[in-house]
Design a protein around this nucleic acid. Structure first.
Lengths: 325, 325
DNA sequence: AGCTCTTATGAATCATTGA
DNA sequence: GTCAATGATTCATAAGAGC
């Protein structure tokens, strides 16, 4: 195992190595949130040595057993994944994995859908562009930490108007005013008196790219916006494995952790989860098996620092790991 | 079995009865498209005819075996379904059904995601509003009919801008212009010179479109009156069965059939699929076990006709079924 | 006609109450 | 104890009303 030197960065622990081995040194019940986007079956053959569809579940389960061990009882495991097609058919390894994780003891709380605003272009004779991915939420039990207020969003204009009208009318009418008498909308008290300046989101996630970024992406030939269909993709983004946008881990880190909590990404990849956790003052742990990615992660984590960083190989035991005392 | 009298309506065959029995009279390889939204499981509504989660798959498979039999080799089966929660956990009956259907011989071509514009409100301590449903596409083989041009949509403003810019730049630069040589712009010629007034959609479905109108971006608020008729039905229908919006079956009927083709909905419900198929000059077959719904369907199918319609019980054999000859 | 404003309600979920 | 019914919570959007 090897801890990557991040110049005593107090919030980040980055390990070069196989996550199934590295995670053995993480204490039981110590992690608040796991957010990861594992390699998707054979698609990233070159980078990860390719996991065949047929053996994906058995490949994943030993790791997830450890994830179950290290997660706090109040913690959450967020799994972003998408099945690829094999011989023009959607492969079943993702849904088989969900069933296997439940058998392993995970509690399948929810499935979010992530609508990709930078979906790869493409159109085929029997298929349209793939523009969404699964985001599964697993927990250790029915009770877990969730900070819903942290992800509130601007409600629709129509809704705001509606609330404003209700408030106005509630001053005119008697208390307990009910527009329908149906019984369903009986209690308008909370609606009128509560804070409705922000609304709660749904389980459909879409993080639109700012317009500026769309054009930057165009210029850089990377992360091409979702509405270009006929271009073949050979962008620089393609070279990174499982690039996922910052807003996705950011959203879940907000929703399931507070400052000082510990976030784990066992497939650190290009370090998006770690970067966002650090920016949000969460502690984070990352594992990454590909040495080239370690450099990418360091560059992203230490953006703005001028020193060039070396990597060293270290023997560590659990006691030396900073945030677990 | 009983054929509902639809005043010699030449395009519609509506049967009151159990679909597993009714379908036995439909010939092999005769149907072009099956679009259906079966009753979703609900343990607590067992007394009202709900299907318990644990027995959903075994309940569904005898019907789907018949669907496989009656579907043409070039046909498609579209299944709209959503798992509910049981004891704060998403239930697995939907993904178990997908696996079982594959074992039964179905080819799982694709999973679309339908973003519901009219999701039920609510917010709970561990969960947000559920705003999407599965739409699975199954086929009998890798080869099937698909009319992609029929569902082309208005591209986004950003895309239009980009195309406009590209065209401008391509006039300035040499022919065969390629800004990078990276392979990203390989199809630039087609992009600039091809017809880009309409774009192909993705596998994420959000329906704003009434009549070939704009498939608006997610960010924009849509104004499609896709609940017009559902609303009129809702008061009587709400308690029992699924009302799914017209745009969903409409879209798949466009995509997978042409005029004169045969569309089947084994759970006709309030008749949305049948109504849209008829409007689009497809022949259609519907089964519905609840007599009250038969009247709802007739009302919708024969909108505008003044005569009041009677239902009769008929003994029929296959030869009497109009469109199979 | 084409706006804006108003109002009803939806395949939901969960805790509590009652049988 | 189990199981079913009731009540509370909540927001995007369609349809109708009003101008």
């Amino acid at each position: 195992m090897s801890l990557v030197d991040l110049k005593n960065e107090p919030l980040v622990q980055l390990y070069l190595g196989n996550n199934k081995e590295e995670i053995l040194n993480v204490p039981d019940n110590s992690v608040d949130l796991i957010v990861t986007s594992p390699p998707y079956s054979n698609q990233r053959k070159v980078t990860y040595g390719g996991i065949a569809e047929g053996s994906y579940v058995e490949w994943f389960l030993p790791l997830s057993a450890q994830l179950l061990r290290v997660l706090k009882p109040t913690g959450t495991f967020i799994l972003n994944i998408k099945e690829n097609t094999v011989e023009k058919e959607r492969n079943t390894y993702v849904i088989e994995l969900v069933l296997a994780l439940r058998r392993q003891g995970w509690f399948w709380t929810e499935e979010f859908v992530w609508i990709k605003s930078n979906a790869s272009p493409g159109k085929w004779p029997t298929r349209f562009r793939d523009a969404w991915e699964h985001v599964f939420q697993f927990n250790k039990s029915q009770k877990f930490n969730m900070y819903q207020d942290a992800v509130k969003v601007e409600p629709s204009e129509a809704y705001k108007k509606q609330i404003a009208n209700l408030k106005k009318r509630s001053q005119l009418d008697a208390p307990g005013y009910n527009s329908t008498g149906s019984g369903f909308h009986v209690n308008l008290h909370n609606l009128v008196n509560g804070d409705r300046s922000l609304a709660f989101p749904s389980n459909v996630l879409k993080f639109p790219l700012p317009d500026e970024e769309v054009f930057k992406a165009w210029e850089e030939n990377s992360n091409y916006p979702d509405n270009v269909l006929e271009l073949s993709v050979a962008s620089s983004a393609r070279k990174h494995s499982a690039v996922f946008p910052e807003s996705l881990p950011e959203w879940f880190i907000k929703l399931f952790t507070v400052e000082g909590d510990i976030v784990l990404d066992p497939f650190a990849g290009s370090g998006t989860t770690l970067k966002m956790a650090k920016l949000m003052s969460r502690k984070c742990i990352g594992f990454e098996i590909v040495p080239e990615y370690i450099q990418v992660i360091k560059d992203r984590l230490l953006e703005g620092r001028s020193e060039s960083l070396a990597m060293r190989n270290d023997k560590l035991d659990v006691n030396q790991r900073g945030f677990f005392k």
